[in-house]
Amino acid sequence: MSPFDDALGPDFGSADQPPPPPLTIEERAGVLDDLAELEVFRTLLEPTGIKGIVVDCPDCEEEHHVDWALMQANLRQLLDEGQTGRHEPPFEPDPDDYVSWDYASGYADGVAALAERDEPSGQRTGRHARED
Rank of each mutant, 00 (worst) to 15 (best):
D6P: 00
G9S: 05
G9H: 03
D16P: 01
P19F: 09
P20C: 04
P21N: 14
P21I: 13
P22S: 02
E26H: 11
E26V: 10
E27T: 02
G30Q: 15
V31T: 10
L32A: 08
L32E: 15
D34T: 14
E39D: 15
E39F: 07
E39G: 11
V40K: 08
F41M: 12
F41K: 10
R42C: 12
R42W: 08
L45D: 08
L45P: 02
E46D: 05
P47L: 04
P47Q: 06
T48Y: 01
T48G: 00
G49K: 01
K51L: 12
G52A: 10
G52E: 10
G52H: 09
G52D: 09
D56F: 14
C57N: 14
E61S: 08
E62W: 01
E62V: 04
H65V: 06
W68C: 02
M71G: 12
A73S: 13
N74D: 07
R76M: 07
Q77L: 13
L78P: 07
L79R: 06
L79D: 03
E81R: 07
E81P: 00
G82C: 03
G82H: 02
Q83R: 15
T84I: 14
T84K: 14
T84W: 11
G85F: 08
R86L: 15
H87L: 08
E88P: 00
F91V: 08
F91G: 00
E92F: 00
P93Y: 00
P95S: 05
Y98F: 12
V99M: 00
V99E: 01
S100W: 00
W101A: 06
W101R: 07
A104K: 04
G106I: 00
V111N: 05
A113W: 09
A113N: 07
A113G: 04
A115M: 06
R117H: 14
D118G: 03
P120T: 07
Q123Y: 06
Q123R: 13
R124N: 13
T125D: 12
G126E: 11
G126D: 08
R127T: 13
R130V: 05
R130N: 12
E131C: 04
D132T: 14
